[in-house]
Amino acid sequence: MATKIRLQRFGKKGKPFFHVVVADSRAPRDGKFIERLGSYNPNTNPATIELNFDKTLDWVNKGAQPTDTCRAILSYKGILYKKHLEGGVKKGALTQEQAEAKFAEWLSAKESRIEGKKENLVKSKEEVKKAALAAEAKKNADRAAALAIKNAPVEEVVEEAPVEDAVGAEETPAAETTEGNEENA
């Protein structure tokens, strides 16, 4: 019987949630399965993956073939790397202690990358929140200033022209009209 490690879909429309299962390759996607290995929730950031490491490694060693998505999940959790190291131990390229040390080093590096991503997500959320608060404060200040201008008493300011300019402007047309009248007469 050909077995596959694959995802079994649960959850509502638009919010998928998956169980990682071992199933006969001929069984329907959400149908009969042999054993449940864990769960995968892609709705969170980073995605939540819970797997029984030993059971999954045992099934991979027995020859269960993971689907493409499950292969990525198993690789992410280190199951395929552990299988690779065990193959090296069987061939004599590594000792068991060396394989365990390499795997522990890989796990610590992986966990630090995941923690770094979580910290960056938290920082970016805080920065977005601060920017939104600053924009809201600016908008409120602008709104308050506009309201203050609207409610302020209106004062009419009439600018008077200098007296000299007004007199000079009036005399010039009058002088021209008198000269024009003398010539016509």
Rank of each mutant, 00 (worst) to 15 (best):
L74M: 03
I114G: 00
A64F: 13
E50D: 12
E97W: 02
H84S: 11
I114R: 14
P46T: 07
H84T: 08
W106H: 13
I73L: 15
A72T: 06
E35Y: 15
P42R: 10
D30A: 15
L51P: 01
G78L: 12
K55T: 04
N52P: 04
V60M: 02
F33R: 15
N43T: 14
S39D: 10
D30F: 10
A64E: 07
G63Y: 04
D58E: 14
A72S: 09
K117L: 12
H84M: 07
E119N: 15
L107F: 00
S112C: 01
E35K: 15
L51Y: 05
T44K: 11
D54W: 02
R113Y: 04
G88N: 04
E100S: 09
R113G: 04
L51T: 05
D68T: 11
T56A: 11
W59S: 12
E97M: 01
T48M: 11
N43Y: 05
K118F: 04
G78I: 08
G63R: 10
E105F: 00
N61Q: 14
K62N: 12
H84G: 00
L80E: 03
A99S: 08
H84E: 07
L51N: 05
Q96G: 02
K82I: 02
K118M: 13
I49W: 01
A93E: 12
Y76E: 13
T48E: 13
K102Q: 14
R113H: 09
K77I: 05
V60C: 06
R29N: 10
T44Q: 08
T67C: 04
E35V: 15
S108E: 14
I49S: 06
T44A: 09
R36G: 06
E100I: 03
K118R: 15
R113T: 06
Q65A: 14
T95H: 00
K102A: 11
K32D: 08
E115H: 13
A109V: 05
E105K: 14
N45Y: 11
K110M: 06
K102T: 02
Y40F: 15
S39F: 11
F103C: 07
E105D: 11
D58I: 09
A93C: 04
V89G: 01
C70Q: 05
G38L: 08
P28G: 11
D30H: 10
L57Y: 00
F103K: 01
